[in-house]
Design a protein around this nucleic acid. Structure first.
Lengths: 141, 141
DNA sequence: TTACTCCTGATACAGATTATCAGTAGCAAA
DNA sequence: TTTGCTACTGATAATCTGTATCAGGAGTAA
């Protein structure tokens, strides 16, 4: 649980920078994201901001994802979760048992994509990648 | 559009090999998959086999995915599509405009995963990857 | 044929998200 | 500081992608 308020501040700054209004519900959602450990579902967020409508929570999440402040990632069964984007573009490891999310540096991924340019038909416009792990905490318990 | 019947034959053989019954609805679904160009949605298939129930179409798709005859892949917005698995384990490129699916050799991907082993916390148990492209047909039209 | 199941279709349900829409509240200008 | 525009909100319905249920039907082995 991060309680520094830094995350909250950054999220709100993201809204300002993108020209969106700083409303009370959005502040509360930002506040709640600041308090989430690891990856969370949209429903987790809804539960943690009682009084804020579900639609508004989903809309706010979408704003943050589009602004790059949150990442939408997929669990092995395809179920979506969200996590903070600490660094610009990166990829995730997700523990299939506890759901803990990790980042990894993606220089190798980028190198791979560069080598794919020669192999694919057309322009590469994006990619999606998740690596599923059995994390050390889970595998020793 | 493939009309060779080879795909249909292979799908039906997959059912036999897995010990499932060869029913008329399943044959019709296999037939329809044979007629699909590139990636298709479950709903596309439902539309192409009138008279076969939606639930049966979804159940049959699931059988093929579990048997490895079909791949479930995700579009950039997360919407699922299905495509034939021509080779064992591989990855896809998906054209974000026309939906055309391509494969690429994954030696580079495997090399990347090996290098990630050192970097991640725990055992890698799986991964998911899609590369989105603007294919040559679309970008010149 | 028989008989045993698996399979089917219709339908209801589920989970995640988006659309709708009337009312509310930011925020900039006066 | 009031006004006024319009983005934003919450409630709710609808959508999309499936899955559960269940009574009846069709494969398949004997």
């Amino acid at each position: 649980m991060t309680t520094s308020g830094q995350v909250r501040h950054d999220l709100i700054a993201t809204l300002e920078d993108s020209g969106f209004r700083l409303t009370a519900p959005r502040r509360r959602v930002a506040d709640s994201i600041d308090g989430q450990a690891d990856a969370f579902t949209a429903e987790d967020l809804c539960d943690s901001v009682p009084g804020v409508g579900r639609a508004t929570v989903y809309r706010t999440i979408k704003l943050f994802v589009e602004a790059g402040a949150l990442c939408k990632l997929a669990m092995p069964d395809g179920a979506p979760k969200y996590s903070l984007s600490k660094i610009g573009h990166h990829h995730h490891t997700v523990c299939v048992r506890c759901g803990k999310v990790g980042d990894f540096r993606d220089s190798t991924v980028e190198r791979m994509l560069r080598s794919l340019v020669k192999e694919v038909d057309g322009q590469i416009v994006g990619h999606r990648m998740e690596v599923y792990v059995d994390c050390s905490d889970c595998s020793t318990s």
